[in-house]
């Protein structure tokens, strides 16, 4: 497998902060990965994803993006990156259709193509019946699915998901994770953060563990479990990050 994104010694110190949120973190994201980034609160997961997606700038280090033509800059890569933030990132005053039409147009997708894509996406995510209803009135699970739909409207090669199933019911969670599996099978590389260890254990083929801004583990789940003689991701997580509160 080839590396699509190469993270090289990334550090981030926010203005006024005494400590680094990320400290010389390096790893590669392979084509077709289902990469899970885990860590306690404040470990630097969201900061790491935000830097990779270009939302914030790193203080130090370098990121290389690759496509079929070789090394490219982030701007070119943005057309092929999808991002599903932890917070709801849509306009609640608009319907799912209007939201998707807007974000799709920003990617430069033609109107006719966009309409077909929206219809398919809303059907797959079980939102067809509320296509023309305002998102602000949806349940948490429906909002999460709209959030996901917007993140994949551009058919991304690489999809970043920051806690995509937080606060949703079991049915919505199942729908989201099933769809992510399908996307990955069709070739989409997925980078995912979560606090749900069971979900991560089932979904991810590679695990990265962060603690206090430092990368403490990076391997396939079986290899990590074997190396640390643990039976589950949660047990491994507690062993490596400790049991103290991280508020």
């Amino acid at each position: 497998m080839s590396s699509v994104i190469e993270i090289q010694a990334i550090s981030k110190q926010y203005p006024g902060a005494a400590e680094y949120s990320l400290n010389t973190v390096s790893f590669g994201i392979e084509q077709g990965d289902k990469l899970g980034i885990f860590g306690p609160n404040g470990a630097g997961k969201t900061t790491l994803i935000s830097i990779i997606c270009g939302i914030i700038q790193q203080s130090d280090g370098k990121i290389e993006y690759h496509n079929e033509n070789g090394s490219v800059d982030l701007r070119s890569m943005l057309f092929k990156i999808g991002y599903v933030p932890q917070d709801f990132s849509f306009y609640p005053e608009l319907t799912p259709y209007q939201n998707l039409m807007y974000f799709g147009a920003l990617y430069g997708i033609q109107k006719a193509e966009l309409k077909i894509k929206i219809e398919q996406l809303l059907a797959v995510l079980g939102l067809s019946h509320v296509t023309h209803k305002k998102v602000g009135k949806f349940s948490g699970g429906m909002k999460r699915r709209v959030n996901l739909a917007i993140g994949i409207i551009n058919d991304p090669d690489i999809l970043f998901l920051d806690e995509p199933t937080v606060g949703v019911d079991v049915q919505s969670k199942n729908a989201i994770m099933t769809y992510l599996e399908e996307l990955n099978r069709s070739g989409t590389t997925i980078i995912y953060t979560s606090h749900h260890m069971n979900e991560g254990q089932e979904f991810c083929n590679r695990i990265i563990l962060l603690d206090k801004g430092t990368l403490i583990a990076n391997d396939t789940l079986p290899a990590l479990l074997e190396a640390h003689n643990e039976s589950s991701l949660e047990a491994l997580f507690l062993r490596l990050t400790g049991i103290e509160y991280r508020d």
């Binding site: 991002y83 933030p85 932890q86 849509f90 920003l106 917007i150």
Partner: peptide, 17 residues
């Protein structure tokens, strides 16, 4: 302050738009 702005930063379009 909303998430939609964060998303806009990951799209090939700027906030000035």
């Amino acid at each position: 302050l909303s998430g939609s702005f964060v998303r806009l930063q990951t799209i090939p379009a700027s906030f000035s738009l």
